[in-house]
Design a protein around this nucleic acid. Structure first.
Length: 476
RNA sequence: GCCCCCAUCGUCUAGCGGCCCAGGACGGAGCCCUCUCAAGGCUCAAACAGGGGUUCGAGUCCCCUUGGGGGCACCA
């Protein structure tokens, strides 16, 4: 049984790199009829913001990533929140000490010092303390951390499904802290204990853990546990190649949704950032992703996150919606006045194939509410053979024609105006152009003249045409 | 400073020694269609970082250089 996990720490919002990790863990588990476990890594008391756990739940839910076990979904491997597992870590820390896998370190601030001087000590002086010396310090009540005792000799080799075989010298590995002086475990310790105890078969996580993996494996070996399979994921960068960061407010899932992207489009997009199905498909629903997902097709190199392709995918997903679905999703984006005055279901049918982001909608329909001020030369259009004079002439003739129409509906309008064009020997475009301009005041509109006329209704359409006629008379 | 990893069009990518004077997609340019725009159809421009090897043959294997990323925290 495949068991994967997504193990975020609740320190803020969910950026798309994290979301992709969650997605891949989910896709892989589901692809193999396995389970996805959600584990909350809140062992850093300074950075943890408990209220942001909600963000994680929300994002996963919106993305459609369903986990099988988690903090509020017990599957027998709990608790799923690391701060609630402290006794477990203490127990294994004691065992590590007994087995000589770890030792107590009484140094203070060594990490800071090392970082500052750039001189990294991989072996801590406390490593060679005798049991008597250790006992003495314990008796004095000196605070301590527990460090991993990494062998000086030999090399460590492991296999990663993305990066292949990786070998490092043990002497290049540092004696990392396993248990902090506040009694909380570090990630480096907790992840090993939890992944083993929770029966995780495949560890899917970011590339930043690749270089620590040999140390984790030493721990697994020391405890006599089998190591999981590893799938390290290359990073997602922003357009300039820099790493995405929370600090700089880079693309979070929530931001993207607020910008008018559909969750399924974002999911589709990030799935393709670093993975491809092996054929030329690009549009995927979540079930289709599950069916197609294969870790052997994950890329090694990092990918940069760009909005332009997401725009396109989003427009594809918008179009894939049924008219009714789109209408429901678009509804909140319409100005209240538009909902009152017009048939927004009809507008939705018109704009569905033209919307890129949902936030485009207000701007797109604004002209229906207020005829923009527009220059009279909008009526001049070479390709449609439309001039000021022809426009005036056509609008004057169209007025009574439209007035006398029995049904005010797109098809009827179209037929009448096309017939009129034929009778007068004009191109359809020559007739339609001035009408569309007159009733929209825009060069480009989300629909043709007759479609817009239908939305506007007879009264408003005629009012706008009349208005245009007087403008044109003045200009002529 | 030390260690590890990565490197194909602007971007996402296909390519696992000959099928590649490198394919697809987004974006760009143009044409067609058309009641504008969008959609759709067609066409074009656009890449194997550089240098050495190995091989009959290299984008594909090896080495070096360069560039980029990650790690070396009592953060995850």
């Amino acid at each position: 049984m495949v068991r994967t996990r997504f193990a975020p720490s609740p320190t803020g919002y969910m950026h798309i790199g994290n979301l992709r990790t969650a997605l891949y863990a989910y896709l892989f588990a589901k692809r193999h009829d396995g389970k996805l476990i959600l584990r909350i890594e809140d062992t850093d008391r300074k950075r943890t913001m408990p209220q942001t756990i909600r963000v994680i739940y929300n994002s996963l839910e919106l993305a459609g990533i369903e986990y099988d076990e988690g903090p509020e979904k017990d599957g027998g491997y709990g608790p799923y929140t690391q701060s609630q597992r402290r006794e477990i870590y203490n127990r294994y820390a004691a065992e590590a000490l007994e087995k000589g896998l770890a030792y107590r370190c009484f140094c203070t601030n060594t990490g800071e010092k090392a970082a500052k001087t750039k001189v990294v000590e991989r072996r801590d002086p406390c490593r060679t303390l005798t049991p008597e010396q250790v006992q003495e310090r314990l008796n004095q009540g000196q605070p301590f951390v527990i460090r991993q005792r990494v062998p000086d000799e030999g090399t460590s080799t492991f296999h990663d499904h993305v990066f292949g075989e990786i070998t490092v010298k043990n002497s290049d590995l540092d004696d990392q802290v396993l248990l902090k002086s506040d009694g909380f475990p570090t990630y480096n310790f907790a992840n090993v204990i939890d992944d083993h105890l929770m029966g995780i078969t495949h560890v899917i996580r970011g590339l930043e853990y690749l270089s620590s993996t040999p140390k984790y494996n030493l721990l697994y070996a020391g405890f006599g546990w089998p190591t999981p399979e590893y799938i390290h994921l290359p990073h997602i960068t922003k357009e300039n190649g820099r790493k995405l960061s929370k600090r700089e407010g880079d693309a979070s899932f929530e931001d993207l949704l607020a910008k008018g992207y559909l969750p399924q489009a974002v999911v589709n997009y990030i799935a393709l950032l670093g993975w491809n199905p092996g054929d030329e498909r690009e549009f995927f629903t979540l079930p289709e992703l599950i069916a197609a997902f294969d870790i052997d097709r994950i890329n090694k190199s990092s990918a940069s996150f760009t909005l332009v392709k997401l725009d396109w995918l989003n427009s594809q997903h918008v179009r894939a919606l049924s008219p009714e679905e789109f209408y429901q999703i678009a509804l909140p984006y319409y100005p209240a006045e538009a909902v009152q005055r017009f048939d927004v279901a009809a507008i939705s049918r018109l704009i569905q194939s033209r919307v890129i982001r949902l936030t485009d909608i207000p701007q797109m329909v604004d002209f229906l509410l207020r005829l923009p001020d527009f220059p009279v030369d909008l009526f001049v259009h070479e390709k449609s053979k439309s001039t000021i004079a022809s426009s005036l002439n056509i609008l004057e003739q169209a007025l009574p024609l439209l007035q006398s129409l029995e049904t005010w509906e797109n098809l009827a309008l179209q037929e009448a105006l096309k017939a009129f064009a034929q009778q007068t020997g004009l191109k359809t475009g020559t007739v339609m152009w001035p009408i569309r301009i007159a009733i929209s005041g825009l060069l480009n509109t989300p629909g043709g003249a007759t479609e817009i006329a239908e939305i506007l209704g007879r009264e408003e359409t005629l009012r706008r045409i009349n208005q245009a006629v007087s403008c044109l008379r003045q200009a002529a």
